[in-house]
Design a protein around this nucleic acid. Structure first.
Length: 284
DNA sequence: ATTTCATCCTGGAGGC
DNA sequence: TGCCTCCAGGATGAAA
């Protein structure tokens, strides 16, 4: 469930620690997680990465990007349960957790672990990546093209993307249209804007679209400030939970009263996903 | 064009 | 206690 705010929290945690460090060794426990041009030649790529400094830690939608000298980059898509772990300053490193697929060791002795129990996460080894504009290289390597960042989207672009009869929730989850939202923040945004998830995107009025876009940005920003949402799996780089869960209004709140009108929150399936709505606030 | 479905996975929940 | 089945859901690709 790492969505945009969770990946941003991870990036914020890794950046001050990893930037400037020199890669000493990369240990691949599960070659399966490596994708892209170096899928079968990852040893070649990682040999070249060794000895270089990490220059940037960035995020594009739900992807986390480590860029080293010379534009060599590791792009992580975290899937459902992917996480990074740094040694806790208090306790230091304890045992290596189960499902550790990649270990980045640095010349100062520190190690950063990529852990993913469900193994839906993937790592792309890419060359010549510009961290300011990574899309072209990611697409050339076969990663799915991403739409505009949800937090950067302007109303005009949003309105243009709503010109389809598809259900609005399906659109919000479609990373090629709007990048960064997952199931939690899609439901939260639709509730905040009083829009039913099954509404055809093209049926939203201009005012509703504007309200929805504002809701999306507000929810994402609040979640980032809270360090993300831990529903079950998410942990930050020090193994700590996100603090946004108690502030969720509908996600996982089925059976509880809507914070706005008191109607019981319902759970249904929409666009193939578990979906939480207030049946009074979010009509048809 | 768009939607549904299966696939990949593990761990947690619920049934018995 | 324990075994079994089901299921969450992000991304992707095939089928309808």
């Amino acid at each position: 469930m790492p969505e945009l705010p969770e990946v941003e929290s991870i990036a914020l945690g890794l950046r001050p620690v990893l930037v400037g460090k020199r890669v000493a060794r990369v240990c691949v426990g599960t070659p399966l997680v490596i994708r892209g041009p170096y899928r079968r030649r990852w040893r070649v790529f990682l040999a070249q990465l060794t000895g270089r400094r990490i220059e940037r830690v960035t995020r594009r939608a739900k992807r986390l990007i480590l860029t080293a000298e010379g534009g060599l980059a590791l792009v992580f898509q975290l899937g459902m349960t992917g996480k990074f772990l740094l040694p806790n300053p208090q306790e230091g490193r304890t045992a290596t957790p189960k499902h550790t697929h990649l270990i980045l060791s640095f010349s100062d002795g520190m190690a950063c672990l990529f852990v993913d129990p469900r193994r839906f996460g993937r790592v792309w080894c890419l060359r010549s990546l510009d961290p300011e504009a990574p899309d072209a290289v990611m697409e050339a390597a076969g990663l799915t093209p991403l739409g505009p960042e949800a937090l950067d989207m302007d109303l005009k672009t949003f309105l243009a993307r709503l010109r389809t009869g598809r259900p609005i929730k399906s659109l919000l989850l479609d990373q090629t249209r709007i990048a960064g939202l997952g199931n939690i923040y899609a439901d939260e945004s639709l509730w905040a804007a009083c829009v039913h998830p099954a509404r055809p995107a093209s049926s939203l009025t201009r005012a509703e679209a504007a309200k929805l876009l504002r809701a999306i940005k507000a929810v994402l920003r609040r979640a980032i400030r809270a360090g993300g949402t831990t529903f079950s799996d998410f942990r930050n780089v020090y193994g700590e939970m996100g603090r946004f869960r108690p502030r969720l209004k509908v996600y996982g709140c089925q059976g509880q009263p809507c914070p706005r009108c008191g109607t019981t929150i319902r759970y249904l399936r929409a666009s193939g996903r578990g979906t939480h709505i207030c049946p009074h606030c979010q009509v048809r």
